[in-house]
């Protein structure tokens, strides 16, 4: 019986060792799971089926040329990896379709990030400032600001980000209030963001709302899709990669954007985490059994 006992003791000690593994090994494996696919330029296909990303793409695609979309940059640098690629991909789609963009921000730092995306994409596609796009800038107030814009955009933003009076901006000539926009897009990292736009602009003034958000907040916005309060939603890096894929369909030699190359690292990191969860649970249960406890019901 000695060998059996040894074997059992060996198995027990393995799970015990796994249960007590130094978490820095886990950090190291996670770092490898993220850095290696990026460094090796691994690429996985990103199939985009029916869903919130496709719905948003289709909605924007159905807007006629000359439409005007309000884009609110409600994020900051801490969520840039997820939201900036969405902003860029959305702008590429809008400008390619000949749709004008009015930018603004409920978050102060979002305005600068939005400006960077607006000027980069506009330059690459030949869109002209004040004719095809304008950035109104940041204003404090969140939901209260949106309500004010519902009656008068000019009262809420007398001048754009660079101090040019709104009355002198050709793009803003036909825009008096929120209802004059064909769509509102919010790139949202928290509050104020999508909930404020849905509540104060969508439900109150009847303007269609779409947008993108961090993956953390995506589940809380899914009910807005089911009830029709949002026309589409990009959730996290996957949403950004979906949109990049959709925008680049049929475009030869298109640059991949920054979200698409990150998806291979994302997938491998998720597999590693799933492995950790399985191993952790087995080690936990084996540890309980070894200590004479049962499996928790």
């Amino acid at each position: 019986m000695a060998p059996d006992n040894d074997s059992k003791a060996g198995k027990g000690s393995l799970w015990k060792a796994l249960d007590a593994i130094d978490r820095r090994w886990i950090f190291l494996l996670m770092a490898l799971a993220v850095f290696l696919p990026l460094a090796l330029k691994l690429s996985f296909p990103i199939p985009v089926g029916e869903g919130p990303s496709k719905n948003l793409f289709d909605y924007i695609d159905s807007l006629p040329e000359g439409s005007v979309v309000l884009m609110s940059f409600d994020y900051d640098p801490s969520t840039m990896p997820e939201l900036q690629p969405m902003t860029v991909a959305l702008l590429q789609h809008l400008f390619t379709k000949g749709i004008a963009v009015v930018g603004m921000g409920l978050w102060p730092q979002g305005v600068s990030l939005g400006q960077q995306a607006l000027s980069d994409v506009a330059d690459s596609l030949g869109a002209e400032q004040y004719v095809d796009w304008v950035n109104l800038g940041y204003k404090t107030g969140g939901g209260i600001l949106i309500v004010r814009m519902g009656s008068s955009v000019g009262a809420a933003f007398p001048a754009d980000r660079d101090g040019v009076p709104i009355a002198e901006v050709p793009l803003m000539q036909g825009i008096g209030r929120l209802a004059d926009f064909d769509l509102i897009l919010s790139l949202s990292a928290g509050d104020p963001g999508i909930p404020a736009w849905v509540m104060m602009a969508g439900d109150r003034f009847g303007v269609p709302i779409g947008g993108g958000c961090t993956a953390v907040s995506a589940p809380q916005f899914y009910p807005y899709l089911g009830s029709g309060q949002m026309v589409g939603l990009l959730g996290g890096l996957k949403g950004a990669a979906d949109y990049e894929t959709l925008v680049r369909q049929g475009v030869e030699d298109a640059a991949p954007g920054t979200a698409t190359p990150g998806m291979a690292a994302q997938s491998i990191a998720h597999l590693v985490i799933m492995g950790f969860i399985v191993i952790g649970n087995i080690a936990f249960i084996a540890g309980r059994r070894a200590r004479g406890g049962g499996v928790p019901g």
């Binding site: 997820e82 993956a215 994302q266 990191a269």
Partner: peptide, 12 residues
């Protein structure tokens, strides 16, 4: 989704 968000930030 929370895991995906945190990994996305690390990827960034």
């Amino acid at each position: 989704y929370t895991v995906m968000a945190r990994i996305s930030l690390l990827i960034g």
